[in-house]
Computed example of a mutant assay.
Amino acid sequence: MLSVQTSSSLDLLLHKTLFYFGVNKDQWSYTVGHTFGSTWTQVLSVTAIYLFAVFAGKLLMKNRKPFVLKSFTLFHNLTLSIGSALLLLLFVEQLLPKLTSNGLFWSICHNDAWTRKLELLYYINYLIKWYEFVDTILLVLKKKNTPFLHVYHHSMTMILCFTQLNGTTPVSWVPVTINLFVHVIMYYYYYLTSLGVRVFWKKLVTVIQIAQFVIDLVFVYFCSYNLFVHRYNINLPCYGSCRGSDSAAIFGCYLLSSYLFLFVKFFFDTYRSASIKQKKQ
Rank of each mutant, 00 (worst) to 15 (best):
N63S: 04
N63M: 01
P66H: 00
F67D: 05
L69V: 01
K70A: 04
K70S: 06
S71H: 09
H76P: 05
N77I: 03
N77F: 04
I82F: 08
I82R: 07
G83W: 08
G83A: 11
A85Q: 07
A85E: 02
L86G: 06
L86N: 09
L87V: 07
L87S: 06
L89W: 01
L90R: 05
V92H: 03
V92I: 15
E93N: 00
E93R: 00
L99H: 01
S101Q: 13
N102W: 00
G103S: 08
F105G: 01
W106H: 07
I108Y: 05
N111F: 13
D112C: 02
A113D: 05
W114V: 10
R116F: 09
L120D: 11
Y122V: 02
N125P: 08
I128A: 11
F133Q: 14
F133K: 10
V134H: 09
V134E: 11
T136D: 09
L138A: 09
L139E: 07
V140M: 14
L141P: 09
K142G: 12
K142M: 13
K143D: 07
K143V: 13
K143R: 15
K144S: 08
N145F: 12
T146F: 10
P147R: 12
P147W: 12
L149T: 12
L149H: 13
Y152F: 15
Y152G: 09
H153T: 08
H153S: 14
H154R: 13
S155D: 15
I159H: 11
I159P: 07
L160Q: 12
L160I: 11
C161G: 14
T163S: 10
Q164M: 14
L165P: 06
G167D: 04
G167A: 08
P170G: 06
V171Y: 02
S172G: 10
W173I: 03
W173N: 02
W173S: 01
